[in-house]
Design a binder for these strands. Structure first.
Lengths: 189, 189
DNA sequence: GTCTATACTCCGATAGAC
DNA sequence: GTCTATCGGAGTATAGAC
């Protein structure tokens, strides 16, 4: 590795470090309750560097959200490629435990943004991919011959949302796994 | 009415008015994003009066939460007095639309407090009455002869939580009523 | 009205890569 | 020597709790 790439590495390392520390603090204490000075201290960088990289606090939030969205998109891609409708639904139910758990802070943050100021809330209400997610579920339930695929989908999304909320407050993984299996059993057509 | 009682009346009126305005603003913009000065302006009182009555901003939040809890307790009382286990479960499912909708601002606020700072979140995680609610559901599912009353209860609470979240973002009552009926249909034992 | 916190700015200095 | 990422600290403006 050349010295130059070491420099590049350290650059991105600091930038990435700011992102990961900010994510952690935003998720833990909320966006509004996390000051840029706290982030800089915990990340071991100067406060000015945050603004150099991200222009302002919201720019930092943007960067965090766009990084986290990628993993959701990857999971969604996996679901789309699953040919069995039933397995697609199971993947949807597994979603909270697998992806949200991998990226717990990120999902807590995104959820919490709904309860921030309306502008913030609107900006990060990423409707496009969620709509696609919804469409995929509707078509899956249709393929299974269910009577009301739209209502089934709404109910399932509500369940998934609830599961992610549970994960936030509850650290007991086994308990949640048990619940998820229980729910899957209800989808044995 | 004497002048003195008029004075008393206006005192409590102003206090109540602060509470109701603060509730509205906290629910709409979030606790952290609502300043005491905005509350005072909209309530038509001096900012100092807020601190005279509630000591500090969190004291105001306390007052709001304790007022709102009453309606939940009343609904819970109704559920306990219902002799049919199935009807108790239906009452639980109806809970979001009936009580949360009556007191939409209050429930939005309580939900949003989960995403505030940990101290705030912990303080208002009213565990006692929710535990009783849970117990009542478990005994209801047991009475109906279900195999896993605890898991059924967890699943139902998750559903109810999800419904309350839906109510926040969605103004379409009919849509939610339809979903609720759909869910009730799943509980026809 | 007071005081503190906070987002954000500016700039001189430094260290390491060319 | 120059460039660039970064530091560190002084400083501003404003909002918000009290």
């Amino acid at each position: 590795m050349s010295d130059y790439s070491l420099l590049i590495l350290s650059m991105t390392l600091k930038k990435d470090n700011i992102i990961s520390v900010a994510l952690e603090l935003f998720a833990k204490h909320g966006y509004a309750n996390t000051s840029t000075s706290k982030i800089s201290k915990q990340a071991g960088v100067s406060e000015g560097l945050i603004f150099r990289h991200f222009v302002n606090k919201e720019g930092l939030l943007d960067a965090i959200v766009s990084v986290g969205t990628e993993s959701f998109e990857a999971y969604f891609e996996k679901m789309k490629n699953e040919s069995s409708a039933k397995q697609r639904i199971f993947l949807a139910i597994d979603f909270p435990l697998s992806i949200m758990n991998e990226n717990k802070d990120y999902w807590n943050l995104v959820t919490s943004l709904k309860y921030q100021s309306p502008e913030i809330s609107k900006k990060y209400h990423n409707s496009e991919i969620f709509n696609q997610f919804e469409e995929l579920l509707i078509s899956s339930f249709t393929a299974l011959g269910l009577e009301s695929p739209e209502l089934e989908t709404k109910y399932l999304i509500l369940t998934i949302t609830g599961l992610s909320g549970l994960l936030k407050q509850n650290d007991n993984q086994e308990e949640i796994k048990e619940l998820i299996n229980f729910i899957k059993n209800k989808y044995q057509y």
